[in-house]
Design a protein around this nucleic acid. Structure first.
Length: 481
RNA sequence: GGGGCCGUAGUCUAGCUUGGACUAGGAUGCAAGCCUGGGGCGCUUGUGAUCUCGGGUUCAAAUCCCGACGGCCCCA
């Protein structure tokens, strides 16, 4: 029996832990000499690929089609929706020259693609029979962040931006789509084992141009909240700005109703963070580039038979559909191999040495708990399969439990502040619903209002923690990335 | 928006206050070998830094000054 790996560095010095894991695994190399950018390494790219495949599967399953729009957006298009540009203006990278010739029309590197996509919607959508439109793309977007950047979390090139855009005939349909978007995202995060809370963002923090925004947040090991996904109800704001109309059955015209929703590589940062420990990555099997690693325990004189047995085991597991790696390097000791593959987060390790060989067994070690079990060689495939399932479930549960512990309800401001300052996490408070009061609350707590719980039937008793007037809702507050 | 700290091999870091004995030290990594082999062991050898860049002060700059770029923190 191994003992569960420590999480003291993970919890106690998350920033350092995150940096160390990204560079040692390696996942993402931040040494590229442009601020706020990074390089996905081969192993990191594989994880990213598995994650984007999960996202893609869930969207396609619900009728979304993948597209690819240009990176460049002409200035006049970007500026069509007033509120949108007001919020993004300060963070746009501009292409101003072609060679040495200044461009007549400046071109923006998309900070997000509403203003690239909606002019095409205007061309594509003519009649109600063209609706709904549900598309998505996975691309890079660029934002000139002026604050400190952080790998994968606050970047200038968001290199994995999945954005979905939909258009509908009626408000009701579009609002149903918001619900579907929320369901899709819930499903994606559940498959990745990432726990979350859903909040309706306050008016002062919704997506620029949206009527309302539903956001998914998770808590990182240091107690800070990370936004991992958002779903926006756009109403008709953009369709009016971009003149997207359809002909109704009665011959009249109406502007379409729109939604959009986005997920970025922050979800990968969350995946890495919520499951990890002091040995490194811990990956759910769905996204692990290698699901099972086979390690021969070689003794002098028995090298060949052990190695052959390991090749057999690897082939058998591969045939059963697992992503398998046989680590037959002669120059490394078994111990050092354990550390290598633990760092990389491989969910299950198979050890096979002379003792097992003689008894017809193998040793399985699970990455999350480091527990070892000896199994019959003949039932290896089934044992690995059920162990992977077990690990995925346990990971998800552990993360969920951890998040639940980070959410506390407080009845007064001082308590709330103490919690936010000492351990972070999410604090729920009774609130009146007044915008001025909410912003005052943010200033007093030096924290951000995440919003009110989405689809939550709880009714607050008593009064607003800040202004003492009657409480109308529960509000979530946290310090965030 | 305002204030502060920092930049030394792939990575982490010592040295900087008080300029010279710095030929820039260590750990880790990487490479080769021996030893080992069911948890990074040990030993030997090798490798790797124009001290972020540009300018200045000085007989002399990793060290002091100015600027750029980059990293980080705090306050509003």
């Amino acid at each position: 029996m191994g003992k569960a790996p420590d999480r003291s560095q993970w919890a106690g010095n998350f920033g350092e832990w995150f940096h160390r894991v990204l560079s040692e695994v390696p996942v993402y190399d931040i040494r590229y000499p442009v601020k706020g950018t990074g390089v996905w390494t081969p192993y990191g790219f594989k994880i990213r690929k598995e994650v984007t495949d999960v996202i893609r599967e869930e969207l396609v399953k619900r009728g979304h089609e993948e597209v690819l729009f240009p990176l460049l957006i002409p200035e006049y298009m970007l500026k069509k929706e007033a509120e949108h540009i007001r919020n993004f203006e300060e963070q746009v990278f501009w292409v101003t020259h072609g060679g040495t010739t200044p461009l007549d029309v400046k071109l923006a590197l998309r900070p997000t693609s509403e203003t690239a996509i909606y002019p095409m919607f205007q061309l594509w959508i003519n009649a109600y029979s063209d609706l709904p439109v549900k598309i998505f793309q996975i691309v890079s977007v660029f934002r000139y962040e002026t604050k400190a950047t952080k790998p994968m979390i606050r970047v200038r090139e968001v290199s994995t931006f999945k954005e979905a855009h939909t258009a509908h005939a009626t408000r009701e349909e579009a609002e149903m789509q918001v619900k579907e978007g929320v369901e899709i995202y819930s499903r994606i995060f559940e498959r990745l084992g990432i726990p979350f809370v859903k909040s309706v963002r306050p008016d002062w923090d919704k997506f620029p141009g949206a009527e309302y925004s539903v956001a998914f947040d998770t808590v990182m090991p240091d107690g800070k909240v990370l936004q991992i996904g958002t779903v926006h109800f756009l109403g008709q704001g953009f369709s009016k700005a971009f003149d997207i109309k359809y002909m109704k059955a009665d011959g009249g015209y109406e502007n379409v109703w729109q939604t959009c929703y986005g997920i970025s590589e922050r979800v990968i940062a969350a995946l890495i963070s919520v499951h990890g420990d002091d040995h490194g990555l811990v990956l759910p099997s769905r996204v692990a580039p290698i699901q099972v690693v086979v390690i021969p325990i070689v003794y002098k004189g028995r090298e060949d038979e052990i190695l052959r047995a390991c090749v057999g085991v690897a082939e058998e597991l591969e045939k059963a559909g697992f992503r398998v790696k046989l680590d037959d390097r002669k120059e490394e000791t078994p111990g050092s191999k354990y550390f290598t593959w633990e760092l990389k987060g491989v969910p299950v390790r198979v050890e096979l040495g002379p003792r097992d060989f003689d008894k017809g067994t193998a040793v399985l070690v699970r990455r999350d708990s480091l527990e070892k079990v000896t199994v019959e060689r003949t039932s290896l495939v089934e044992e690995v399969k059920s162990l992977l399932e077990r690990i995925d479930l346990d990971l998800k549960e552990r993360a969920k439990k951890w998040l639940d512990e980070q959410i506390v309800k407080k009845e007064d401001l001082e308590d709330a502040k103490k919690v936010l300052e000492s351990r972070g996490g999410i604090v729920e408070l009774n609130w009146c619903g007044n915008v001025g009061c909410g912003q005052d609350l943010e200033a007093k707590l030096d924290a951000r209002v995440l919003g009110i719980p989405y689809e939550d039937s709880r009714n607050p008793e008593g009064s607003c923690v800040n202004c003492n007037s009657k409480a109308n809702m529960i509000i979530r507050v946290a310090r965030s990335y």
